[in-house]
Design a protein around this nucleic acid. Structure first.
Lengths: 351, 351
DNA sequence: CTGAAAGCGCTAACAA
DNA sequence: TTGTTAGCGCTTTCAG
């Protein structure tokens, strides 16, 4: 039942040539001249027999396995995961490679084990990924391997890295608010994510805010406030409530992610304020939530697919320079942004 | 810089033994007797040199690679993905295996390519997974391989399969409503998912409803209605609105998933009905949404992690019988279920 | 133009 | 108890 796989010597025998000749034509090499006729016979035999090369054997001989490893802290477990893996898979598939996945769970001991396991299997390269954009150090065990950083970066910049273009995302989010005609009452919820655990903020927050502030400055408009907090729904809810309780009714809210926006929606709803007629809301990430909320949320999308895809492409393209590749974050215009309408004439925006 | 890896013959040489001896002690085999002293020398040498076996070479020789492939239609791209992969990774790691991931995107051509690619790399087994629980046929290319079905099943039952225990989930969801004291006004939103594209419903819907109805029958309580529809937020929204428009105010809603429940929440909110004081809501899946909604949603959890983990365990445990493994779906009791309170005395439930 | 032969690193008969 | 040797399936040098 478990029939033996056909090997190259089966093909050679049937074609009446040596394995050398078979190897050369099947590898499609031109440097050694093979008669058209022999080539034809080999191809035919391979086709008839359904020959497929044993990549383990080839790997042993050449030490290339057409295999790449995606090692992450905990990426596979998050929202982030799906499209990143999808993009990586597409790029790997296009180059006829196959993808190992592994999670370190942030544990250096596990990390080293996993990396060695991959090395034992002679993977051709590594994508080293993190869930949140942040600074990392490439593990020592990877010193002799090709590595591309995904969603993270290293100060020494020893490897190419692929990051979302958060700075321009910030500019674009601000541009949406400005284009809607707002010049006052603009508040940011979430800010740089300066919390007890991350007093200096997080990279995405710092970049997004840099972009927001650049765009505002350029337009000569001032932000009326930046609430620094965690980026969960309850934080958005609390901060908007606090604003409202203080008697401030914002005209536009730039929420640092969709979960924060969900919390903001809830607080606005409790106060019987309407989006977008009373308050304009724009957000970041473009998670599933953004299309589930009513009105649908205008959000600047994290380019998950592009990140995964580009990382593997860079890895496989073999360029050695440690360039940083910034992946554009597209704005998804939906129904939560608009100029504030004088009360009484609230227009009904199509969804 | 790229120093050569140390091989077994390096170890043997340094220990002053043959590679055979080295191989036997490093493989930890007891059947060939090796002197304690030689064994010690080999272990020492291996340790000093930092020897790690080349698994490609071993694979070529033994045709076992300690590698498993997770092939799915589009699992990596969904909510479903994260924890399934995580579970699979943990089980693989515990058995010192490594995990390939691939997506067929539902295309049989791609599927066959991927399977062959894995076969070319001598993977030891396959987890064949689907995003939705459904019937499949194991691809012909896998006929000679160990396969475990994940979240799907085959009529011929040629392989073990791992499925969520949806039937008991249905019973448990109904039990929550019944335990809250409801005996009337109980409506189901989503039903068996009998839509134009799936006129016979989907497996999860059929099983969940079978469980719900069993529990209701056992308690001698009748369902007041089952809305058959798709399972998106807009469907939940529409169906609950329709109910309300017809003058029916439900006392309890069993929503077939959290997205449907989100839509239901929105419709109830528009009608100024409060959860859970006016309407009790329970749901399935326990996605992130369930904790984001206010009040937090009581939901019967899909056991993603357990599915992934069990599938790989079954694959690696080597039991050959095509058993079906049902993974329990735990009820996450939160704040959306309660007995309906006579108006005026609505208690405030803690969240 | 083609073939013989060595060897990638490991395991496992078989012999000593 | 240990070593010699063949060979897994492939690539590639070198000699014809």
């Amino acid at each position: 039942m478990t029939r033996r796989r056909v090997t190259m010597s089966d093909v050679a025998r049937r074609a009446g040539v040596s394995t050398t000749t078979a190897s050369f034509v099947l590898a499609g090499r031109q440097d050694m001249r093979i008669s058209a006729e022999a080539e034809e016979r080999v191809r035919l035999a391979a086709g008839e027999l359904g020959y497929r090369p044993n990549l383990t054997a080839r790997g042993l001989r050449t030490s290339v396995t057409r295999t790449v490893a995606l090692i992450s802290d905990t990426i596979a477990t998050t929202q982030f995961a799906g499209e990143v893996i999808h993009g990586a898979l597409d790029a790997a598939g296009a180059a006829d490679h196959v993808l190992f996945i592994a999670e370190t769970e942030g544990d250096p001991g596990i990390e080293i084990q996993l990396v060695e396991g991959m090395l034992d299997r002679q993977v051709d390269g590594f994508v080293y990924a993190t869930m949140y954009s942040r600074k990392v150090r490439i593990p020592e065990a990877l010193r002799d391997s090709r590595v591309v950083l995904l969603n993270c970066y290293e100060d020494e910049a020893r490897a190419p890295c692929v990051l979302p273009d958060e700075f321009n995302a910030g500019r674009d989010a601000a541009a949406v608010v400005l284009a809607a005609g707002h010049t006052a009452g603009i508040h940011v919820i979430g800010g740089r994510h300066m919390t007890a655990e991350t007093p200096d903020g997080v990279w995405a927050g710092l970049e997004r805010m840099r972009g927001v502030e650049e765009a505002m400055a350029r337009a000569g408009v001032r932000l009326d406030g930046v609430a620094e907090c965690d980026w969960q729904p309850e934080d958005g809810h609390r901060e908007v409530r606090r604003l409202l309780a203080a008697g401030t009714v914002p005209r536009a809210l730039i929420c640092l992610n969709d979960r924060v926006a969900l919390g903001a929606y809830q607080a606005l709803q409790e106060a019987e304020l309407r989006v977008p007629d009373d308050v304009c809301v724009v957000s970041f990430d473009d998670s599933d939530l953004a299309t589930w909320l009513r009105p649908r949320l205008t959000s600047v999308a994290l380019p998950h697919y592009g990140l995964g895809r580009t990382a593997v492409e860079v890895l496989l393209d073999g360029a050695a320079d440690p360039a940083v590749h910034r992946i554009a974050m597209p704005v998804r215009l939906r129904a939560s942004h608009a100029a504030v309408v004088p009360s009484g004439e609230a227009a009904h925006k199509a969804v």
